[in-house]
């Protein structure tokens, strides 16, 4: 595959070429997705070095086990984000990482709603995401953000929000489903 072909290829086609041993195809996927992956890991971990480690692990894993990406189950972007998030949360939940993060964040104010909406609006797809998020109830949005960006389990979220665990479970699920439907309507996701 030539450089021009790589540049024009869909993610799924690049993944197939990666499976044949084309490092440049992996490089193309890296150039497309490493930035947002790094941003996600850094946001969850609040640590640049750990975020680099996570992104490196995820792309190396894609190289070593490319067959784990199944295009029938979602986009490459979603696959990579899920890998990054899962590994970031695993790290975060290690006790040492959590202690360090708590120390780093000791002087932060957890006003996630404001940060999220402002940040999303800066992206090309952000406006649709922002509108979809705005349509969620405050309870849904808060539970999702604490779980996703805060790396908390839903049980921890329930404690933080002083709500029953069942309520938090329900809000996370219903919020994500409503977000998905809204983004499909807006043409952001297929």
């Amino acid at each position: 595959m030539s450089d021009a072909q790589r540049g024009a290829a869909a993610d799924g086609d690049l993944a197939r070429v990666v499976a044949e041993g084309d490092r440049l195809a992996l490089g193309e996927l890296y150039s497309r997705h490493a930035g947002p992956c790094f941003a996600l890991a850094r946001r969850v971990l609040a640590d640049r070095v750990l975020a680099e480690e996570v992104v490196q692990e995820v792309f190396l894993h894609l190289w070593r086990r490319p067959e784990r990406f199944d295009p029938s189950r979602g986009s490459m972007r979603s696959f990579l984000f899920a890998q990054v998030h899962g590994r970031s949360v695993d790290l975060l939940r290690a006790e040492t990482a959590r202690r360090a993060r708590e120390q780093r964040e000791a002087f932060r104010s957890p006003t996630i709603d404001v940060d999220l909406e402002r940040a999303v609006a800066e992206l090309s797809e952000g406006e649709a995401v922002r509108r979809a998020l705005a349509d969620l109830s405050e309870g849904e949005r808060g539970a999702i953000e604490l779980a996703y960006f805060g790396g908390h389990t839903y049980r921890e979220v329930a404690v933080l929000l002083e709500l029953p665990e069942g309520t938090v479970k329900s809000r996370i699920r219903s919020g994500l489903l409503r977000l998905r439907a809204a983004l499909i309507d807006a043409g952001v996701n297929e």
Partner: peptide, 26 residues
């Protein structure tokens, strides 16, 4: 649901650029 979660990840932090040296390490 995972597609929804991926949409959340579109929200950037202050710097959404991966360090240039990271690809070299990979």
């Amino acid at each position: 649901l995972r597609e929804s979660a991926a949409s959340l990840a579109l929200a950037p932090v202050d710097d959404a650029t991966a360090p240039p040296e990271l690809w070299d390490r990979i």
